[in-house]
Each structure stands twice: as structure tokens, then as C-alpha cells.
């Protein structure tokens, strides 16, 4: 851009007058640093330092009393070759991820789609469906252990009323306990649902009108318009779902405590980290478990990120495109 053009466009200078040379402004580094300091402090002391410390500890034997003792890869060897609880926890975690993520996405999308239909009282319905996601996980889980109680819980009373003679024992039965957690998760679908709802409302109605004129059925409209345009939301929900499900803890911990889950059917990876750290006081081993969890989550996320080019449709471009 020439100087003359700058002058011409400036309302404060007369036409043809040269603008004075620009003063080089000093970057106020101190001010910027001061503004950033709360975050920096938090980042350094509450994230970076614990992570570095935990990485170091993962190669040590550390019981909180004695100083950490370097043992090389022993924690990792124990994890993969000696610790049956590790495999049990991993198996349970993979199970809940594989089952719950698709179910949550499907249920959230379906609920959101249903909520686009009412002409009146729309906001009330949306609020009702969103509310469960605001209930604290502990309270919700305790309520569900009551609802699913095989002796006096309303669910089994209803199942018996419709003719099911031996309804499941839910949280008290290792074969059914995880399904109880899945249902608990589906009940609190509100947060995912709201994202799908926003996505669905964003789909141009003209596309449906055009499809209708072309004679497309409802299923075809869903398959060729709604679903492709929802893929960014599905992608987002999958990534956050994987990260969340590998850290699945509160509901399982509360439910297993309520019903004495001695069979470890609700023993998840995060629970194993918690027990190793705060029951067995093996901080070194717990740190190693945490780092393996990070690697697993990272790998899963990378795989999803890599494959998204094939199935995620971005009509207006995207960072990931």
C-alpha cells in the first residue's frame, strides 16, 4: 500500500500532504505478561508441573512416605504382564466406550430430531430433555441405584407387571451392571443433544424442499441430507465421547460403592488409577497407568482424526479439512 493512498484515505490529513513517519509502537510485554499471568500460573503449576512430575514418577516406586525410587520400566512391565486388574479395567472401559458412544450419538440425534418437530412448547420440551444433564453425577447415580433396585425399584416392578418374571438384577448382577450405567448415560444425554439440535436447525430447509420436489422419501432425506450435514457434529461427539469414556469414573465408582461391586464388573480404567494411587498408595504405578491412558486416548483420537476425511462432510470448510 503506497503512502499517498494512506494519506488520501485519512480523514485527518489534507489531500496531498504526506503522513508523518509512523512511530514504532513498543510492545507492552509486561502488560501482556501480567494479563496472562493467572493462566500461566495455573498452566505451569497445576498442569505442566504435575504432568512432568507424573511422567517422572511413572518410572519410579513411590509410596508417598519414602522418596521416589527409580525402577525404570518395571511399572509398565507389571501393568502389561502381571496386573490382571489392569486388563479387567481396560476391558470394561473399551466395552463401555464401544457400546455407549454410538448409542449416545444415536439417541442424542434422535432426541434432537424429535425436538425439532413440536410447533408449540418447543422450549419447554428442550429444557425438559436438557435438564438431566445438569443433575450432578453422584446424585443421578444414587437415584438410578434406587430405580434399578431388584427388590423395590420401579423399573423391575414395571417389567414384572408386563410379564417379565425374572427381570435383571441390574447393578447387582455383573452381566447387567454396565447396561445400567449405559442407561444412566443415555438419561443424561442433554449436553450432546443440544449440539445435535443446533446442527439440525442449521440444515437449510431449502435442501429438504428440493428433495421433496424430487420425490425423496423421509429416509432418503435423512440419509442424503441430514446425516451428511450432521457428520461434523457426530465427529465432534465421537472424539469427546472417546476422551470422556476413557476417563469414566464417577458414576461407576458411586454405583459400585452403593451395591458392593465385588465382581469388578464396574471397575474401569480411571477406577484402577484411583485405587492404585489412593488405596494401594502406589503413586508411581498410578502415574504409569495415567500415562498409558493418555497414549491410548491419543491414539484413538488420532485414528478418528485421520479417518474423518473419508466420512465427515464440511459444507463451509473446516480447520480439519
Amino acid at each position: 500500500m503506497s503512502q499517498a493512498r494512506v494519506v488520501a484515505s485519512s480523514p485527518f490529513k489534507k489531500k496531498g500532504e504526506l503522513a508523518p513517519p509512523r512511530r514504532k509502537l513498543k510492545t507492552p510485554w509486561l502488560f501482556i505478561f501480567l494479563c496472562m499471568s493467572p493462566w500461566l500460573f495455573g498452566m505451569v503449576f497445576f498442569t505442566a508441573y504435575p504432568m512432568i512430575s507424573s511422567f517422572y514418577q511413572s518410572f519410579t516406586k513411590f509410596n508417598l512416605i519414602e522418596s521416589p525410587k527409580w525402577i525404570g520400566l518395571e511399572n509398565f512391565h507389571r501393568m502389561f504382564f502381571e496386573d490382571s486388574d489392569f486388563w479387567q479395567a481396560l476391558k470394561n472401559t473399551v466395552w463401555i466406550s464401544v457400546i455407549s458412544i454410538p448409542l449416545r450419538i444415536a439417541f442424542a440425534m434422535f432426541t434432537a430430531w424429535v425436538l425439532t418437530k413440536p410447533k408449540r412448547g418447543r422450549n419447554i420440551y428442550r429444557t425438559i430433555f436438557f435438564l438431566p444433564s445438569m443433575v450432578p453425577a453422584v446424585a443421578a447415580t444414587m437415584a438410578f441405584t434406587y430405580i434399578f433396585n431388584p427388590a423395590y425399584g420401579p423399573i423391575n416392578r414395571m417389567l414384572e407387571a408386563i410379564g417379565i418374571k425374572e427381570p435383571p438384577f441390574w447393578f447387582l448382577d455383573p452381566k447387567w451392571s454396565k447396561w445400567g450405567l449405559i442407561l444412566l448415560g443415555l438419561w443424561g444425554i442433554g449436553d450432546t443433544m443440544i449440539i445435535f439440535l443446533a446442527g439440525l436447525l442449521d440444515v437449510p430447509t431449502s435442501l429438504y424442499e428440493a428433495a421433496s420436489l424430487e420425490g425423496a422419501s423421509g429416509w432418503q432425506s435423512f440419509r442424503y441430507i441430514t446425516l451428511p450435514l450432521m457428520t461434523p457434529v457426530i465427529f465432534f461427539s465421537t472424539v469427546t465421547g472417546v476422551i470422556g469414556s476413557f476417563q469414566y469414573f464417577t458414576q461407576a465408582y458411586v454405583a459400585s460403592g452403593q451395591v458392593n461391586d465385588y465382581s469388578h464388573s464396574m471397575y474401569f480404567y480411571a477406577t484402577h488409577i484411583y485405587f492404585s494411587a489412593f488405596r494401594a498408595y502406589e503413586m508411581g504405578y498410578a502415574s504409569a497407568l495415567a500415562w498409558v491412558l493418555l497414549v491410548i486416548t491419543l491414539l484413538c483420537t488420532l485414528v478418528i482424526l485421520k479417518t474423518q476425511k473419508r466420512w465427515v462432510h464440511y459444507p463451509n470448510g473446516s480447520l480439519f479439512k
Binding site: N149, P150, A151, Y152, F169, L172, D173, V259
Partner: peptide, 12 residues
């Protein structure tokens, strides 16, 4: 049979 009955008894 006893185990199942007790599970339900304990739950109540």
C-alpha cells in the same frame, strides 16, 4: 436358587 433369592433379599 439360594444365591438368587439372597441377592434379592439383600437388595431390599
Amino acid at each position: 436358587k439360594g444365591s438368587k433369592l439372597l441377592t434379592k433379599f439383600v437388595a431390599a
